[in-house]
Design a protein around this nucleic acid. Structure first.
Length: 360
DNA sequence: TTCATTTGACCTCG
DNA sequence: CGAGGTCAAATGAA
C-alpha cells in the first residue's frame, strides 16, 4: 500500500480477475452437466466479485442487495434444521493487530473473529456447531467475571492435517442462550464431512452440560449446504464495532466466498491475490462430484480496519513470513492450497505480483 | 483399542 | 503477578 498500490486497488484488481476467472469456469460448467447449484454458485461468486469491485471503486456495490439476491437465487432448500437454527448470528471481525508491535506471533498472528450465536434452547440445537467442522475440546477455563466457563476447541485434524484452527466458546452471562464463539485461524484441513463420523461438536457438548434434552440433534452433523444456508441466512456483519462511515462503503461480505478461505492463509484469500490458484478451492474440482453441494465454510476472511477498506490482517513482515511458513508447512490442503506466492506467480502472469512489498 | 473429554499444571502475555 | 490459553495425563465412552 505504501508502494503505490493500496490494498483497495489490489483487491479491486483481484476481484476483477477473479470475476473473469469465475466467468470462465461458469462457461465450462454451462457446457457440462454440472449441477444447477454449482452454476449458481459460480454466478453468485461472480456477482459478489464485481459487487466488491464496485464497492472498492466507491460506487454503491450494493452488497446487501447482492447478498439478498444470492439468497433469493440460491435455490437451496430450507434444511430441516432451519427451524432450530440460531435466530440470530452476528459476525464481526475483530480489529486486530492494530497494536501489533509487541504481540505474540504465535497467538496473534492467527486471524481471529467472533461470532455470536443465539441458541434455541427448546430445540436443543446450538447454533455454533453449524460451522461444518469437527472440533475437539482441549480445555476449559473459568474466566474471571464470567458466569460460565470458556471452552477451548481445536480442529480435530490438527495433527493429521496440520490444521490449526481453534475456537473458544463462551456462554453469555446475561443470556444463557447466547454464545460467543471466537475463531482463531481458519481451517487448512481437507475435512469434507462425508467420511467423518459425526462427533458431537463443541456446542453440543456444552449443550449436554446445560441441557440434557437435546437428544434429537446430537447426531446431526452439519452438512455443508446447511452451513451455507445458515451463513446465508444469518450472515450479518456486525459493523457496530467498526467505524461505520469508513468501512460500510467498502466492505462487502459475499456469502459465497467463504468456501475458499483457509487457515492462516486467509489473508491471501481470493480477495487478495492468487485467484486462479487458490480459487481452485472453488474450481470444479473443488466442488467435488461426490458432494456437489458441499461448500467449505470459514466465516470470514475479510478483515477490516479503521482506515477503511479491506486490509490484510497482518502488519509486520514477520507475521506474514510466519503465515507463509505455516502455509507451506501445511502438507495437504486441497481446500485451499496456498503454496503461494510461488504458485500465484505462475497462475496469472498479468497480475502485478511484483508489486514491491506485496508479499512482505 | 481407539478416540474424545476432563482437568490440573504449565506457559504466555499484558 | 494474574488471567487467559494450551498441554497432556487420566478417564470415560464406543
Amino acid at each position: 500500500m505504501e508502494n503505490g498500490w493500496s490494498w483497495e486497488q489490489k483487491t479491486l484488481i483481484n476481484e476483477l480477475v477473479q470475476g473473469m476467472d469465475l466467468a470462465k469456469q461458469l462457461r465450462v460448467q454451462l457446457s457440462t452437466t454440472s449441477s444447477t447449484e454449482t452454476k449458481e454458485l459460480l454466478i453468485q461468486r461472480i456477482l459478489a466479485s464485481y459487487d466488491k469491485a464496485l464497492s472498492i471503486l466507491g460506487l454503491s456495490g450494493g452488497s446487501v442487495v447482492q447478498h439478498q439476491n444470492i439468497r433469493a437465487t440460491s435455490g437451496v432448500p430450507e434444511p430441516a434444521m432451519s427451524v432450530d437454527e440460531s435466530p440470530r448470528t452476528d459476525y464481526f471481525i475483530e480489529k486486530e493487530n492494530e497494536d501489533n508491535k509487541c504481540v505474540s506471533k504465535k497467538r496473534k498472528a492467527l486471524p481471529k473473529w467472533t461470532e455470536q450465536v443465539r441458541v434455541n434452547s427448546e430445540s436443543g440445537l446450538e447454533g455454533p456447531q453449524e460451522d461444518g467442522y469437527n472440533w475437539r475440546k482441549y480445555g476449559q477455563k473459568d474466566i474471571l467475571g464470567a458466569k460460565y466457563p470458556r471452552s477451548y476447541y481445536r480442529c480435530t485434524y490438527r495433527t493429521t492435517q496440520n490444521c490449526w484452527a481453534t475456537k473458544q466458546v463462551q456462554r453469555s452471562d446475561d443470556d444463557s442462550a447466547l454464545f460467543q464463539v471466537t475463531y482463531r485461524g481458519t481451517h487448512t484441513c481437507s475435512y469434507v464431512n462425508q467420511s467423518v463420523p459425526p462427533p458431537a461438536s463443541s456446542e453440543e457438548q456444552e449443550q449436554k452440560i446445560n441441557h440434557s434434552s437435546n437428544n434429537n440433534n446430537q447426531h446431526q452433523q452439519p452438512q455443508p449446504e446447511q452451513v451455507l444456508l445458515h451463513f446465508r441466512k444469518s450472515l450479518r456483519v456486525n459493523t457496530e464495532e467498526l467505524n461505520s462511515k469508513e468501512t460500510a462503503s467498502t466492505f462487502s461480505f459475499p456469502s459465497t466466498l467463504f468456501g475458499c478461505m483457509n487457515g492462516d492463509n486467509y489473508s491471501f484469500s481470493p480477495l487478495m491475490l492468487d485467484n486462479n490458484n487458490s480459487m481452485g478451492s472453488f474450481s470444479p474440482s473443488y466442488i467435488s462430484p461426490e458432494t456437489p453441494e458441499s461448500h467449505y465454510f470459514s466465516p470470514l476472511p475479510y478483515h477490516m480496519n479503521n482506515s477503511g477498506g479491506i486490509h490484510p490482517p497482518y502488519n509486520s513482515e514477520s507475521d506474514i513470513a510466519e503465515m507463509i511458513s505455516a502455509n507451506t508447512s501445511a502438507t495437504n490442503s486441497p481446500i485451499l492450497d496456498l503454496d503461494f506466492p510461488l504458485e500465484s506467480v505462475e497462475m496469472d502472469p498479468n497480475f502485478p505480483f511484483d508489486i514491491p512489498g506485496l508479499f512482505k
